[in-house]
Design a binder for these strands. Sequence first.
DNA 1: CAGATGACTCCCA
DNA 2: CTGGGAGCCATCT
Length: 139
Amino acid sequence: MPNLKDAPLYERIYAVICQVPPGKVSTYGQIAAIVGRSCTAREVGYALAALKAGDRGVPWQRVINSQGEISLPDEGGEIQRRLLEAEGIGFDARGRIDLDRFGWDGPDWEWLDQNDFNPAPLLRRTGKKGARGRQLSFL
DNA sequence: CAGATGACTCCCA
DNA sequence: CTGGGAGCCATCT
C-alpha cells in the first residue's frame, strides 16, 4: 500500500503509530493531530482498543496520554510499562514519563508527503488558554 | 439499520 | 488534587 489517503481511519492511525521509534513515546492527541481530518484523541484510543491481539506489529505501547501516563488499565498497563522500560524509557515516582525527554518529534516531512497526510495545524481548540507546549513540531 | 462500546482531552468547580 | 461534563466517531453485535 503506497498511499494511505483513502485507507480507513483506523488504518491511518496505525500507520502513524508505526512511525514512532523505539525509545520514544507519543500521545493520543499527537497521533490524532498528525492523522488530521476528523481524528480526535479519543478515536486513537478507540482504534488501539480495537487492536486487541490482532496486533500486526503496531507499537501500541508507545502511545500514552497527555499527562505522560499510561491509560491502559490493569494488566495491560503493567505489560505496557514493562515494554517501555525495556526500550529504555524511564518513569518518575508518580509513574509518569517525561515527555520532554522521551516524547516523539513527529514523522518526517517526506513520510507525510508520500502518504498524503494533511496534519492538523499546530493549535487545535479555538480560543481558550492556548498552547500548552508540546504539539507538533513541524509547520 | 439501531444501539452499544471504547486505551482521550480539555475545562471548570 | 478530585470529579464531572461535553465533544467525538468507527466498528461490531
